[in-house]
Write a protein that binds this DNA or RNA. Structure first.
Lengths: 113, 113
DNA sequence: GCGTAGTGCTACGTTATTTGTAGCACAGGA
DNA sequence: TCCTGTGCTACAAATAACGTAGCACTACGC
């Protein structure tokens, strides 16, 4: 892969250079805990520690990294005294995600027998 | 659940122990290249190398790992002479994913303008 | 004032995963 | 035979995630 000059993060969202927004989204969401974090925020704000607990006690390092990315993307914001919560855009994202949730249910039923 | 002996992969799908299928799906799809691979297969089968090319020349190691996981989950299968392609279940998955695609389009427009 | 507990966030050494390059065995075509 | 393509693997290096500990800050009770 011909990596750009900056090695730590070439942009807020990897893959955005392709110009295909789905790639940017795929790349942002295709990192460990990203989808999970957004999912756990779906029905109400959570403090950083409550969020960590909800996410199987993921390490604070990744937690903060993912939260930064999600905030940078405009999906999550931090209200002082209220913890993290989804922005309207983030809420829209999770609504778009709902069909996948329903698919997961069907999928598990099919696996179960 | 205590982790099984095999250390390379504790189970086909990390997070399935929670009993919540969405977690299993979130975990399977929340690995690098997984969503991308499924996405690139959306309109037709691809050979392993064509798939690798389509995925920004991802390393064959992860490619094979992800393909194994996707095949194990029943989303992808390999037809000899025809390359990899989505199973009906995999196609169903990608259809459930379409709203996210549309969201990505709206999202990019919002970022651009 | 002091101590305690909560918040968001970071440092750092260890571990796991991903990468890049090279290569394997096999199958078909010339 | 040689060449090309397939699916797939080995292995060292680079990267990302983990786990533990801790920071600065704020709000509370004393």
């Amino acid at each position: 892969m011909p990596k750009p000059a900056t090695k730590t993060r070439q942009s807020a969202v990897r893959g955005s250079r392709t110009g295909r927004p789905i790639m940017a989204l795929l790349d942002l969401l295709g990192r460990r805990w990203t989808l999970r974090i957004a999912w756990e925020l779906r029905d109400g704000p959570l403090t950083s520690r409550a969020l960590r607990t909800a996410c199987d006690d993921a390490s604070p390092t990744v937690m903060q990294a993912r939260l930064s990315e999600l905030r940078e993307a405009g999906f999550v914001e931090l209200l002082s005294g209220d913890g993290y919560h989804l922005t309207p855009l983030g809420r829209e994202l999770m609504e778009s995600f709902l069909p996948l949730h329903h698919f997961a249910e069907r999928w598990s039923r099919r696996l179960a027998g």
